[in-house]
Design a protein around this nucleic acid. Structure first.
Lengths: 215, 215
DNA sequence: TAACATAGAATGAGCGTTCAATCTAGAACA
DNA sequence: TGTTCTAGATTGAACGCTCATTCTATGTTA
């Protein structure tokens, strides 16, 4: 974070960067297999191919490794969201692009780690802050995306209405993480298709805050 | 599980049942605060108001406590699903009832534990089996529910189509668990309203396996 | 008295972390 | 070119602690 990082003397050196990444890679694997608390520095160091003590030259402690893994995962989420935003100016484009996002969320390995992160966020304030900040950025992006697509289709929406739709969209995507764990044998193509339809319907929801839908 | 349970000599006695529940209650609190691996028998026993050793008269080991907590949580899920099934024979009834379900999923404490369970299921085979079996039961119930509502509305659906809709419905509900963690300040009423609309649209999705939706 | 409930100390393993000691590669110098 | 020096890279044993689990001893009750 600071320029003078005493724990990583030459953090900019390519060797140090490579070692850090090596540790993060091993840690991600351990965290996936054993969870944040179940994974030990000893196991991580063994997989990373270095001594336990050496890890502490690159990370202050285990908590810092967790924070780095969390930040790394969320960065990839923000990237995906930004790509959606950039590529999809109309409804059909978003629906088409959504298929890739769905496929990514349905990968069981990635899902396991992402769920571990949210579960950790529910009890660890440091992780909670990283997660909720990333989510806020993500929501802003998605809100702009939905607003544009709908205004292009003639809708005029309140901010609250858009925010509600963003939440539903997020539910659809994040729910997939749990589906692939709870029902590993689900039909990925069929689910993708139905999610796409649901997203399409979401973008056509009534804008005003009506009582009940009548389709 | 078996009739002759050597670890809990008089499991049917009311005192034993109460003690077991006392332990599970303390364990749930600890698991919520520290996760399955972060919670220790010492902490659980302190909260339960008994010695660490005494816990082992009611549970074979920590893993058994985890399994019991998981089973207990999933039982409440199955109960909710069954109530939906019983109370909702038409679309409007399901949408109205859904509000309660949404509210339940948006409770951050309950959500934390449920997410911990899914994360654990992603790496612990014993938990994975309990979770996936409960999910299968749940899906069967929801499939029957959706099929009935839609057939009453004149739709004739393939099993695969129904299964896809069930997955989307599950995504909506399970996604809420993550939303309440990632965005604790979300507008619960607005979200409920938008989820209700989405469920309404879901029940009106085209039955055939069309290419893309055109609403 | 017999059977069960309960306590709490003991055990050995494993944890995160520290640290003194070694290795290594390249700069400085001859 | 060959030698020395040195600062960072790396090791792995050691530390203090906590963990899950066991076991013996003591209450409690019928």
């Amino acid at each position: 974070m600071q320029d003078t990082d005493t724990t990583t003397p030459h953090a900019d050196a390519p060797r140090a960067t490579a070692r850090r990444q090596q540790i993060l890679c091993a840690a991600a694997q351990c965290f996936r297999e054993h969870g944040f608390h179940g994974a030990s520095i000893a196991k991580i160091s063994a997989i990373a191919g270095m001594s336990p003590g050496h890890i502490y030259h690159y990370f202050e402690n285990k908590e810092a490794i967790i924070a780095a893994i969390v930040a790394q995962d969320l960065e990839s989420l923000l990237e995906m969201t930004a790509q959606f935003r950039a590529a999809c100016n109309v409804r059909a484009a978003l629906i088409e692009r959504a298929a890739e996002g769905v496929a990514k969320q349905l990968d069981p390995d990635a899902a396991g780690l992402k769920l571990e992160i949210v579960a950790e966020a529910a009890r660890n304030p440091r992780v909670a802050q990283i997660v909720s900040e990333a989510d806020a950025t993500c929501r802003r992006e998605l809100a702009a995306l939905i607003r544009d697509i709908r205004s292009r289709a003639g809708h005029q929406d309140s901010a609250a209405a858009i925010d509600g739709m963003v939440e539903v969209l997020a539910c659809l995507f994040e729910g997939l993480l749990q589906r692939t764990i709870r029902n590993p044998g689900l039909d990925r193509d069929k689910v993708t298709q139905r999610i796409q339809i649901a997203i399409g319907d979401l973008l056509n929801q009534p804008g005003e805050d009506a009582l009940k839908p009548r389709s």
